[in-house]
Design a protein around this nucleic acid. Structure first.
Lengths: 138, 138
DNA sequence: TGATTTATGTCGCATTACGATATATCTGCG
DNA sequence: CGCAGATATATCGTAATGCGACATAAATCA
């Protein structure tokens, strides 16, 4: 795949990309924690809320979207239900499925988190775009 | 911070950004695993190798770069040393410090991983840049 | 209808990061 | 110089979370 040998600058760019991504992740994790939400639970709420199309979110679709195994999604949803963020209901059309909906509590927390994330992303974006572009001619 | 109320499209964009990042992380984790390396250990090797400047990497600097607590870095380095990827030596200039260096084994694995990461990043970059740009006027 | 597939759930295990705490070394100030 | 405090690293027990193996229920299809 890689024709030429990798340079020090290649490694440095890869390292910088990861550092930038980690800083964003760290911001996001901290912000969620401050709202009393583990990072993965925040991601789950966002995935449920941001799920386009009219169809309801299910445990399995959430797993795909979060790139975790279906049974890990089950556990995650279990924690969300226990904490009062998600309502889980059997899908009448296919009773194997569980449809997921956010509670008002979740809506409120997610809106707060999403607002500050928009701000942070707008701040980070130019830097990240520069780094990404630097890979084109490397 | 956020003046206007968030729209469905805002949530969808946030969700899509995360999904894109997760796909990259998943690619990276899988690639590292195939080389027999847990993801965090891969990141540590990259941080050590991609550390610009002439100064040697230390346990503490690695912690900063990986955004983990110093003692978590200690543990991570311990695993890397045990697995034969890193050499840890007391810094003569400050004997509290441990300088870190990659073994040949680590160099080889990291080069392989970095090459396929460059390819993957080049493929992902345009999509990610588009998503990031979409936040500007949102 | 019975076999297979799909969707979800349960349990024990492994990884990994953290908090609390400890030890060794360095640095600065009186 | 000599000690107090700061700095760098290390150890141990704990917690969060995902996975593999396995289980259950419902739908699908031959």
């Amino acid at each position: 795949m890689a024709r030429d040998k990798l340079s020090d600058a290649d490694y440095e760019a890869l390292s910088n990309l990861r550092y930038t991504l980690r800083r964003f992740m760290d911001f996001s994790t901290s912000a969620a924690q401050q709202e009393g939400l583990p990072a993965q639970q925040h991601q789950a709420l966002l995935a449920i809320r941001g799920h386009g199309g009219g169809e309801a979110m299910t445990v399995g679709k959430l797993a795909e979207r979060l790139m975790i195994a279906p049974h890990s999604s089950t556990e995650l949803v279990g924690r969300l239900v226990a904490a009062g963020y998600v309502i889980r209901q059997v899908d009448p059309a296919d009773r194997r499925r569980q449809t997921l909906a956010l509670t008002q509590k979740a809506d409120a927390v997610l809106e707060q988190l999403s607002a500050i994330h928009l701000t942070e992303i707008r701040e980070m974006a130019p830097r990240l775009i520069d780094i990404l572009r630097s890979f084109k001619d490397r």
